[in-house]
């Protein structure tokens, strides 16, 4: 045996630096990791207990009416649900806006305010990876918020033995509408939030944009209704996020409009314009976010 005691002063070598020669998984993996971290973050998972409170309450508030409707539908002798699947998100729009106002700034403002972005951009991931991961994560969080209550309605409808074909068709349409809504809301919410490193401003600005635009559009629509101008009611719907979604689903998915007098887009042309505007706003907000982050860089 050689002299073992000699090893003792070198104890530090046991915890010495070890090089890493395992796999390095590249951009797609980093993007996925950022996506899942941001998605979990939108519901406060992996963050402090305090940051779970609001998203979880809002999620519960979104689901509660659906659960009540289902309970009533099963307990009584209804033949169909009292609310259309596509209508649910429109009715609950205030909750969705609140969730967006709370979580979009959470997702991007902190990185800007505390200048964390240089830590990302000094790694192999690119600007588009960061923006795409944040966008997709918030859209997924919103989709979960809007689609799960509708799924509760659907399961309830099946348990109540409503007509399977029509229920499934209605549910599928609602999923499409909610996907579009999630992309639209995520894009606008992130864009507004990314403009300011102050989270409070971001929250206030998102609430203002969503509620004021809806309030303005609804009141002008009401005026148009009084003046007997149904065409104008439809076109006015272009100017706020939720009425834009309503217009698209009324024309494309055949749901009942929640506009004044149920006057959705009044022609095929109007419907196409609604869909084009919706897609342009989603694409535009992604493009503007990319521009916003070009300036951020390392500084």
């Amino acid at each position: 045996m050689t002299a073992q005691p000699d090893v003792t002063p070198d104890v530090i070598h046991d915890i010495g630096y070890r090089h890493y020669d395992g796999p390095r998984l590249g951009r797609a993996y980093a993007r996925r990791s950022l996506y899942s971290q941001s998605l979990r973050g939108a519901y406060g998972l992996g963050r402090s207990a305090k940051s779970k409170v609001l998203p979880m309450i809002l999620f519960a508030v979104m689901c509660a009416p659906a659960a009540i409707i289902v309970a009533v539908a099963i307990g009584t002798s209804m033949t169909k649900l009292p609310v259309e699947y596509t209508r649910y998100a429109i009715i609950m729009q205030a909750v969705i806006s609140l969730f967006l106002a709370a979580q979009a700034p959470q997702s991007v403002s902190l990185d800007l305010r505390f200048k964390v972005t240089p830590l990302y951009f000094s790694r192999p991931i690119e600007r588009i990876d960061y923006v795409a991961a944040k966008f997709a994560a918030l859209a997924t969080a919103l989709f979960a918020l809007t689609a799960i209550p509708v799924a509760i309605l659907y399961v309830g409808a099946l348990l109540a033995k409503f007509d399977f074909g029509s229920q499934t068709a209605g549910f599928a349409k609602a999923l499409v509408a909610e996907l579009l809504l999630s992309l639209l809301y995520a894009g606008l919410g992130l864009l507004i939030a990314a403009l300011t490193p102050r989270r409070g401003f971001g929250v206030a600005a998102i609430i203002a944009v969503f509620t004021l635009s809806y309030g303005a559009v609804s009141s002008v629509q009401a005026v148009a209704s009084v003046q007997g101008n149904p065409g104008a009611i439809g076109w006015l719907g272009l100017f706020s996020p939720i009425t834009l979604i309503d217009g698209v689903q009324t024309w494309w998915l055949g749901s009942t409009s929640s506009y004044v007098d149920a006057a959705g887009p009044d022609s095929a042309l109007a419907g196409v314009v609604f869909l084009v505007v919706l897609l342009a706003v989603i694409g535009g907000s992604f493009g503007l976010l990319m521009r916003r982050y070009r300036k951020v860089g390392l500084s």
Binding site: Y20, G22, P23, R24, L25, G26, R27, Y29, A30, S33, L34, Q37, L119, Y120, R123, P124, I125
Partner: peptide
């Protein structure tokens, strides 16, 4: 940990 993953570490 998060930044390690951003650098591609499993």
């Amino acid at each position: 940990v998060h930044m390690a993953r951003m650098s591609g570490m499993p």
